[in-house]
Design a protein around this nucleic acid. Structure first.
Lengths: 144, 144
DNA sequence: TATTGTTATACTCTATAACTATA
DNA sequence: TATAGTTATAGAGTATAACAATA
């Protein structure tokens, strides 16, 4: 029985995220990627976004910040942008073959990384952690 | 019964940390602080560090990065640095009265923020989350 | 006028390398 | 030579404000 002060949850979360985020960056960098590039690629491949605003929101950044990343990715030959015929204000973003290849490679990194993260936990623990994190995020993210 | 793919733990963690980290930054900024300044103040007040290297390690940044923050904090009149008489290579960092005041204010912010984070969880859930995060961090942080 | 996206600019945090002071 | 810390420099990611293009 002990009465240690509970660890500040926010501090623990930020420390954990920092350590794991850096490990993730290293893993991505080893395959020629970065975390934001991976998030952009993943969103493009898995969510039907109708414009860059939605894409930015899905990644959790501002529109101008997304443009910054898209510029770099376009320079790297990972994607193309062209105005949508239907609404010429909208820029359609499309992955090139090279972009698809990088996506596949980084997906492998992400899968392996997640397996590594889960390896020390039982499936029940993993599910619990995911649920608690989701609730924690919602409690701050969503207006209550 | 469903067979949805489990959410990638790393992605969920980074998203959660981003949302909560920003809320924390906002809360700190409202009282004239920042998260790294808070972490430096907290470490100075709660751990006996014998030099800046240890301080940097405790905060999780490089020595030069710490110097950067200490410079700003010294310019703001939050602390003083002077060479240690015993070992003149070492710089003793001491909080000024103003630094102490900011620490007290930011401690209030941190406490309130943590209460907010915990408010949606039972004590058991909070303890579970803290334990799982700690294990997750250790699994990546410590050489195994 | 409203919407979509870009450009220009700058800030924060971080890091590495070279340097100074001290031992 | 080794250690403590600083300075110089740079880079990644982010943001806001002003702008251009389109509706």
């Amino acid at each position: 029985m002990h009465f240690l002060a509970p660890p500040p949850l926010g501090l623990l979360l930020s420390q954990t995220a920092k350590v794991i985020g850096r490990a993730m960056e290293d893993a991505m960098a080893a395959e020629g990627g970065t975390v934001p590039v991976w998030q952009v690629l993943l969103t493009l491949k898995t969510r039907p976004v109708s414009n860059q605003r939605e894409l930015a929101a899905a990644v959790g950044i501002q529109g101008a910040t997304l443009t910054h990343h898209l510029n770099a990715m376009e320079d790297d030959g990972l994607l193309t942008r062209r105005r949508s015929p239907g609404n010429r204000r909208v820029h359609e973003v499309e992955l090139t073959e090279r972009g698809e290849e990088l996506f596949a490679r980084l997906r492998g990194v992400a899968v392996g990384f997640d397996q590594r993260l889960r390896s020390g936990f039982s499936p029940e623990e993993t599910a619990t952690l995911a649920e608690l994190l989701t609730r924690l995020k919602s409690s701050v993210d969503d207006p209550e």
